[in-house]
Amino acid sequence: MMSEKFARAGDYTAAEAMIVYGARMLAPFDGKIGIIGIGAPLLATHLAKILYCPDMKMIVETGQADADPEEVPISIMDSRLTYGSSWQMGDPEGLFPLVRGEVDFGFIGGAQIDKYGNLNSTFIGTDYNKPHKRLAGTAGAVDIGGFAKATIITMAHQKRRILEKVDYLTTPGWMVKKWPEGTMVRREEVGLPGGPIAFISSMGIMRFDDETKIMYVDRYFSGVDPKTIKENTGFDIDISRAREADPIEREELRVLREVADPLNIYRTR
């Protein structure tokens, strides 16, 4: 019976695992208000609303309130998010609820993450004026990560992405910069609520220590050795608390492939 219910490690891609575990992370937020960022979080949320939290109130930074798309949106501006929503306004109405403290969780991606859960989605390199690699910008990430009561982060697990320190602090994690000096302080000290509660990568689920606020491996996906996670992390990450994640169910994969993204628009397979 086991083999029928659960998929085996080789049955899915790392990107699919990231989406499925991301979707599961939203289960406790049924009935709550969440703001969903562009990219993989949109697909994971779409899957979650089908499987785990049909009554999650999804707001989008482009002003859709209680959006409930029938098809996975390709971006936060997709007409698929407008259809059937309670209210369709614009970015002010989409983002201001964050600052007012009304958003229970945010779900975002990034390009780099550091051990305190700070994200970089602006540039890679040392010279801002001539960056080695330009990225997407703050987009909504700085606002979502700054003000949601809890933030969930998802991105692929690569050594060059998970670092001691990010090149540009776009989205505040637990230890942030207090200007004008740029001293590292706890986020409460600059008046920010919330903070990152989990980072779902393509290898496992990382959380942040209650005391030190430093990232550790909480769960590794089936078929992934926690040592591999350590090797693919740009700082010396604690794997002593790591346990294997509950395996992916065949039904989750079926819904992802046949219902959530049948045309593979998100290129997860």
């Binding site: 109130k57 707001i59 309130a65 929503s85 209210w87 609820p97």
Partner: peptide, 18 residues
């Protein structure tokens, strides 16, 4: 019916979430 109002979200001025 809530559903009636949601047929034209651009015509609504207050969202259910508030």
């Amino acid at each position: 019916p809530e559903e009636y109002l949601r047929r034209d979200p651009n015509r609504n001025q207050i969202p259910c979430t508030s």
